[in-house]
Design a protein around this nucleic acid. Structure first.
Length: 485
RNA sequence: CGGGGCGUAGCUCAGCCCGGAGAGAGCGCACGGUUCGGGUCCGUGAGGUCGGCGGUUCAAAUCCGCCCGCCCCGACCA
């Protein structure tokens, strides 16, 4: 076999993932340890994620801004938990312009501190609130163990930062943004998630409460796919962000922050991908439909290519999918065979392939192949003049089918457990949902015994009470335990 | 930071144990032809400080020492 197949997902998931990222040209290793280059195809995917989220942020009143990459090191020392959490993974600039700096500068690992500093200058009155900001940025965290998209020294994300007059408003904001992440994952990426709250030991350094969306990867490990933090007045006090309320009383603001990173691309790969390669969710796919022309003779080539070119023009100009022009690519490479192209575009995860050959021309039709169904089963012939109306429906159908598959997978590997023995067995192959007393010792015990961590306390709770799966004490909530990335 | 693996052509690797003739294979790439409805076939060609530095030797990709880098598995994290 000239073109080796990917390692199969079931045999070696980690190797399958690595090779797929490289071969689909989403990213490549940079010459610096732990850093990656996001290649055009991967970045196009990220741009579509950005668009989908940005639109939602703006619709809920947020504005984009840009804060500096470099942050005075002393800023991190102002909030005790924050510095403890981030100090070990800071990259620090000590020299500039050939001279040693008076004060070292940290390359931002997140921007609460510098935004807090600016707010302390900008906020004077309750009339200045709320502050609803977001920035699209790169950040650096000196991770020891890296993996493309999932954990790299430098990564790209959006970080939302808001300041509010009241606790209630800030808490509402925290939950609103968590809801947006959940809805985005479901309706754009076809990824079902569990929304919940992080335990004390898993929460963000400096937060009062951290909320998360957790997604189940194809190897049944959990991935934190987005987070939303209620920061209380921790940063307000650390950076002295105060305002005068209606009664002329000086008050501290209440802040939130929330983020989703290029890690989400890893989730898309690991949730939907199969042994053939990527299966990109149609609404985020850089290419939604690829046209593969097929011919034998020069005369056929001329006829087929003419129709193919016209089709590409017509589809990208006339067909709107969810309000945006259909993203169509014509694969006019003449030095590779159709069979090669089929495999190539399947590896790259394009949702729909449009085959046009002499037989199709004769029937005034094209052959459509959908990526979510393998082989012949996913193929159908569609008349040329019905394609424009057919494609959006097909893309929706693929989206629904990907979501349904992922949802079924999640549900079939998420089990309620009653005993500790059950929990230990379940987390080897999936997620365990169990009564938990809320104590860190019990979480730690589970982690020590199984390497599974407390992923979250789901917002959806059964109610009532039970006995902690570890210690047997009274428990009022159930938590999800799983091995995670 | 602990454990493991690897560094020879763009990629995957052979050669190294046992030093010696011209530094190799497959893929990819370029050109020509052939093919094209599920990873075509043939030919020609370009392409290499054998990770770096030092040592041993008449002679080092090969033996020895030091260094550097990367990947994988664990603890930490989005």
């Amino acid at each position: 076999m000239k073109y080796p197949k990917l390692p199969s997902r079931s045999e070696n998931f980690a190797e399958w993932y690595n090779q797929l990222v490289l071969r689909a040209e989403l990213a490549d290793y940079a010459p610096v340890r732990g850093c990656m280059v996001v290649r055009p195809y991967g970045w196009a995917l990220w741009e579509n994620i950005q668009q989908a989220l940005d639109q939602r942020f703006k619709a809920t009143g947020h504005q984009n801004a840009a804060f500096p990459l470099l942050i005075p090191l002393s800023f991190f020392e102002k909030e005790k938990e924050h510095v403890e959490g981030f100090a070990p993974e800071l990259a620090i600039v000590t020299h500039g312009g050939g001279k040693k700096l008076e004060e070292p500068l940290a390359v931002r690992p997140t921007s609460e501190t510098i935004i807090g500093y600016m707010w302390s200058k900008w906020i004077r009155s309750y009339r200045d609130l709320p502050q609803l900001l977001n920035q699209w940025a790169n950040v650096v965290r000196w991770e020891l163990r890296t993996k493309l998209f999932l954990r790299t020294l430098e990564f790209y994300w959006q970080e939302g930062h808001t300041a509010h007059a009241t606790r209630e408003e800030a808490e509402e904001e925290t939950m609103r943004m968590l809801g947006i992440y959940e809805e985005f994952a479901r309706t754009e990426a076809a990824i079902p998630v569990v929304s919940g709250q992080k335990s004390e030991s898993e929460k963000f350094a400096g937060a009062v409460a951290t909320y998360t969306i957790e997604a189940m990867m194809g190897d049944r490990r959990a991935l934190q796919a987005g987070t939303s933090h209620f920061l209380g007045q921790n940063f307000a006090k650390a950076f002295n962000i105060q305002y005068l309320d209606r009664n002329n009383q000086l008050q501290y603001v209440w802040t939130t922050s929330w983020g989703l990173s290029t890690r989400f691309i890893g989730a898309i790969i690991m949730v939907h991908g199969d042994d053939q390669g990527l299966r990109l969710p149609p609404r985020l796919a850089p290419i939604q439909a690829v046209i593969v022309p097929i011919w034998k003779t020069d005369e056929e080539e001329a006829r087929v290519m003419e129709v193919a070119r016209n089709l590409k023009e017509r589809l990208s100009q006339e067909v709107l999918y969810r309000g945006k022009p259909l993203r169509v690519h014509l694969d006019d490479r003449d030095h590779v065979t159709p069979g090669f192209k089929f495999n190539d575009w399947e590896l790259r995860g394009v949702p729909v392939r449009i085959e046009i050959g002499p037989k199709d021309l004769e029937a005034r039709a094209v052959t459509l192949a959908r990526r979510d169904r393998p082989g012949r089963e996913g193929k159908e012939s569609v008349p040329l003049d019905r394609l424009a109306e057919h494609l959006p429906r097909l893309l929706d159908d693929i989206h629904e089918s990907l979501y349904a598959q992922a949802k079924a997978f999640l549900e079939s590997h998420l089990h309620d457990v009653e005993t500790y023995e059950d929990l230990k067995a379940v987390v080897r192959e999936g997620w365990a949902r169990a009564w938990w007393c809320g104590r860190a010792e019990c979480e730690a015990q589970i982690k020590a015994d199984t390497t599974a961590t407390n992923r979250c306390i789901p917002l959806e709770q059964p109610g009532g009470e039970g006995r902690c799966v570890v210690c047997g004490e009274k428990a009022t909530v159930k938590a999800i335990f799983a091995r995670a990335y």
